[in-house]
Structure formats: structure tokens, C-alpha cells
Design a protein around this nucleic acid. Structure first.
Lengths: 241, 241
DNA sequence: CTTAGTTAGATGCATCGAGCATATAAGGCA
DNA sequence: TGCCTTATATGCTCGATGCATCTAACTAAG
């Protein structure tokens, strides 16, 4: 151990520290497609570009608490499924100074996504266009409601891509999919979520069997209302006995 | 946005920052069992306990670079498969001060693991005892070569548990398993790696078929030597065309 | 009241992959 | 030469999935 390392071990305050932030990838379904919520930067750097809601981590805040704080204060959303995604630490990811960012995935049911949009005019809903199949990985682009490709700030395009990759990977062996659904939902809605996230169409009978056999779905006995055809059974997510 | 947040956005140097570190979970196979490399802490806090090799992230270091630096300087290992694991940010994880730690998984082939032990007397090889099956998650314990349970420093037991969980999860759909093997290996060795990581026994013909069908294995034409029975074919990992 | 239209939900069949038992191959060694 | 051990191959069974199709339940048009 060198002298410098020894000092760093015992007096790291003497060394310059990177700043630490959290950034949130707020995802939800909108008109059957996967969408994210972004904020427009009105100042330099990257003024006019679109950014993930983010904020610095307080000295007395856990990372999860910082993520929740950003969710509530910057996005005006009371709660969501929050899950740590990845930590980004490139040297030049922010031109102002060295900022390490712990990215979080924040998943919202469709209604909460829409409500967040109504309550905060600053939030922009963007459709996520994924150019790669399955879990190949690659670029994603953010499309405005009018279909224009929006320029993203900093390394936020990479963070968004990582979020999609993670979500696709976890979707069919974990229960994250339910975080994008309301309390009561139909099997069709569940399938829509999977199809939107995976960017594919799925076989209906096989999907139904697979989900029902998994033991996560509890029938509520209720039916969906307002359809002009046979109403579907409503299910509830039951966290595996 | 409040005034405080505005200031934090533009002058975060005015606010106290957490320190940022990386910790390495060095894993390899030893006598057919999954093992990790730990360092004994000789000072407070947690003196006498066993810790993951770690170090602070320099202001001009990426996270990956900091991890590589710890690998080389603290563990004396030239190279390994390095992969970011998770970022730990509990308030009291280090009693000295607020330290956020980005944990990395570092995977070593058996020979490199043994070589690291020879070159650095400070490193302790510990067997990882996992008390839960599959990807349930839970506690893991570190056993000394004599079979004693070793006390771990800080939250390093939780980091170790997360490493096992991640490794088990990625093992059969990704190529991480090969990072624990030498350049040339037999199918039996590959199966040993999988069995050690998963903590189960696997069906041999099924495992062979699955691995060969995956298209990652290129036969070298060479045979293993020194056995008193039929020598196995040696394969090479081919990163999927 | 009847019928068309639409989607929910169920079922039968073919296929594929994995578990398992077993057979054959290839080396060392007594 | 025969025995022991492990590598490698193969056939059978079973469960999960893809696919086509059938029935159920509702609205709306006439």
C-alpha cells in the first residue's frame, strides 16, 4: 500500500470527491406502447435537450431515499416501483464536473403515468423506440408525441437503453411486469405489458397458461366493465404464497 | 424547484459529498468449490474482520478503472473478468464516514486464483457457503480453509450474497461461466463450474447437449492429458459468431 | 327476438428441450 | 489381455410451449 493510498484510506476528505447523483428512468405504458417521462433542460449544459429526472444524493440520504426524493420532488409522483439499475461513472458524462450517477428504474401503472403528466406540465411523455430485438442491446431513441426524435442530455440515452435491456431481461422470470399494471387487471392487459416491453407479439394461449401456472395470479371474481364483448376476468398479483 | 435544490444543482461543491469507493468480490474455483479472496483488516473499525479488497474512486478515474486499480494494487492480480454488481449506500455501512460503494464482480480462472494466493500472503481464500437454493437469496458465510466461519467487515456479507445471486442468475443465459475457466477446458470442467456456482449437481448428457447446442464451444482437437482413463476433448470459448 | 361481430377462455395436437438410463469408446494399469 | 474409470452417444419419457380451433359471453344492429 502506497503512502497516497494510506492517506486516502484514512483521510479521504483530503482528496477531491466526485459528486453523486441519482437519475430516474420513469417508465409506463401509454396507448399500449412503452413510454418514459423526461424533463426539458432549460439551462446549459445541454440546454433544450431532454433529461431523466435526477438529483444529488444528500450526505444523510440512502440511495433509495434519494431516488424516492427525486420521484416525489422532481416528478411529482407519490410512489412507484423503484429498483436500482446501474451506476454510470464516465469521466466526461457531465461537462460541469465529475458526477457519478446511480440510475434507478421507476415503473408506473398506466393511470399513474397519465396522472403524473396532468399534475406536472414540465414532464414530457416520450415513446421508446427500440431498434434491437430481444436482449441484444443497442441504441434506443425517444420519440415525442408527434413522432419526432428528441435529443437526450448527457449519457441519458445509454441509461435509457440499459433500462430497457434490464426490464426485458427480468420480465419473464421476475414479477416486475406487475409494477406496470393497476391493482386489478386482465390477462390481456398483462400480455399487452409483456408485448410492449419485449417489442414482440406473444401467443395468447401459451401466455395465459404460463402466467396462470406460475401461481402469481389470484382471480378476484370481478369482471372488467364497459366492453362491447365478453368481459374478461380481473386478476390480482399475489406475491407467490 | 426550491432554492436549496437550485444551489445543489449548480454548486454541489458547497454541499458535503459522500465518499465513493469500489469493492471487489473476487471469485474463483478452488478444489471444485466456489471461493473468494479476502483481506484481513488490521485496523479499526472492524479490525480483525475480513473484508473485500476495495479502494476509493479517484476524481479522474472511471468506476471500471478504479475497480481495475484495486484488482492490481490491492490484490496483485493483473486481469480478471470485471463486471459492475450493485451500489451499496446505507447510511451506516461504514462507521467512519459516509461511503458509497460500487461493488464489482471479479471472476478468475482456477490457476489465476491460485497464483494470486501465492503472490500475496495477505489474501485469504475462503469457501463460500450458500444456505439457500437457486436464486432465492439470503445469507452466505465465508469459511476459512480450516472450516471456521470468518466474520466479515462492514456490509461485505451482503455484497458477497448479492454477488452469488447475480452469478447464479446470469450463469446459464450468459457467458460469465467461461470467465472462471482457463483458455482450454473440458466439458466436465465447465459442468464443475456450473455445479459449484449453482450448488447443485447437473445431469451430464443434458448439460453437454445444452452447451454444445448453444454454439459457444469450439473444439480444439486437443485432448486433456495425464488422466488414467479416457481423455476428454478440450474446448475453447467462442463468443457466439 | 334474432343474429352478427368481437374478444375471452379452453382444448387438442405437434414439437422441442431436458431428465434419465444405458450403451459404447478410449485411455491407464495390473 | 482383461479390468477400471471416465468420456461420449443414443433412445425413451415427460413437461412446457407454439399453434389452430372450438366454445362462451357480451353488445349492437335489424
Amino acid at each position: 500500500m502506497t503512502e497516497a493510498e494510506f492517506l486516502a484510506e484514512y483521510d479521504p476528505a483530503a482528496y477531491e470527491r466526485p459528486a453523486l447523483a441519482v437519475d430516474l428512468v420513469l417508465l409506463g405504458l401509454r396507448a399500449g406502447r412503452l413510454a418514459a417521462l423526461l424533463l426539458k433542460r432549460d439551462q446549459l449544459p445541454h440546454g433544450g435537450r431532454w433529461a431523466l429526472p435526477g438529483g444529488f444524493v444528500g450526505i444523510d440520504q440512502t440511495l433509495d431515499a434519494a431516488a424516492l426524493h427525486v420521484l416525489q420532488e422532481k416528478a411529482g409522483i407519490a410512489r412507484a416501483h423503484l429498483e436500482q439499475l446501474y451506476t454510470f461513472g464516465a469521466l466526461d458524462r457531465d461537462p460541469r464536473m465529475r458526477i457519478i450517477s446511480v440510475a434507478y428504474l421507476a415503473l408506473l401503472p398506466e393511470a399513474d403515468f397519465a396522472e403524473a403528466l396532468e399534475r406536472s406540465a414540465a414532464l414530457m411523455p416520450v415513446t421508446i423506440a427500440v431498434s434491437w430485438p430481444g436482449e441484444t442491446g443497442g441504441e434506443v431513441t425517444a420519440l415525442s408525441p408527434k413522432g419526432e426524435t428528441l435529443p437526450l442530455a448527457f449519457d441519458h440515452a445509454a441509461i435509457l437503453a440499459m433500462a430497457i435491456l434490464r426490464l426485458r431481461g427480468k420480465l419473464d422470470y421476475s414479477d416486475v411486469g406487475f409494477a406496470l399494471l393497476p391493482e386489478h387487471f386482465t390477462l390481456r392487459q398483462l400480455q399487452d405489458v409483456h408485448e410492449a416491453v419485449l417489442g414482440t407479439t406473444l401467443n395468447k394461449p401459451a401466455f395465459r397458461r404460463r402466467m396462470l401456472d406460475r401461481g402469481w395470479l389470484a382471480p378476484t371474481g370481478l369482471r372488467e366493465a364497459g366492453t362491447s364483448f365478453r368481459p374478461a376476468e380481473l386478476y390480482r398479483f399475489q406475491p407467490s404464497r
